[in-house]
Write a protein that binds this DNA or RNA. Sequence first.
DNA 1: CCGCCGCCCTGCTTGC
DNA 2: TGCAAGCAGGGCGGCG
Length: 270
Amino acid sequence: MPELPEVETIVRGLEAAVVGRRILAVQVLLPKMALAPVGVQFAPALVGERIVGSRRRGKYAVLLLASGRRLVTSLRMTGRLIVGDEGDAPYPATHVSLRLEGGLRLSFADVRTFGRMRLVEPTEAWDAALGLEPLSRDFTPERFTAMLSGRTTPVKVFLLDQRRLVGIGNIYACEALWGARIRPSRPGKALTSPAIRRLRDAVVDVLARAIELRGTSIDDYVDADGLAGGFQNRLSVYGRAGEPCSRCERPIVRTVIAQRGTWWCRTCQR
DNA sequence: CCGCCGCCCTGCTTGC
DNA sequence: TGCAAGCAGGGCGGCG
């Protein structure tokens, strides 16, 4: 499931592979996957556009187009953005296919069809409801404290809420809480200021380390070249129920918080 | 505004 | 062994 580090890796791959190239043809195989503003047709609007940038916002991959429009992709759980050669066999479960200059093809594939590609007008504030980037300078202990104050929801649910902080999904929420030694069910407002500081640092640290290893590949995630990441070998708690905690040797447990599997250490996380 | 819930989907895992 | 139910989960809309 692509979270911030995985989308960042994909976006960097797209930067290298497709930025500067013109879109020559667009095929939409499953219409619900390709959204456009009212009165704009997705495929015709993209043909002839040049890709001028590749960015990430939260868990969204954003291709900047010469017209000022943007192609925003949400990968959800199983979505993939794959760069291949025009002559390759079609990538499995491809729903949108862009033929690019230079004999390349950019495929948006998703077996579960939860993901979406969305063409956004230059003036449209598509990300207005999204929260703070955790790797930005703005993510200070002071800001984090203000965000958490009065929050009754479990801190793990808070970390997953993209209206507050963006980019954190189930894997990195579990990992950051373990790193900060905080119990996932603690209400946000109950965190002490040292705990808030530890959690801020743990979020930044785990995301940065995961980007260095090009993301976590458990079931589905691959980068723009179709390659797996390496952070799955560095996970401390996620998916490791029954294994000993690397800090205290007590077994990692799995509980459920807000319908999400939650892995943590009952001994170290308070 | 806030919090909570159900839905969307398919493939893998689990359990009988 | 075979099959079906259950689970996985990010974002969004609806509801209180």
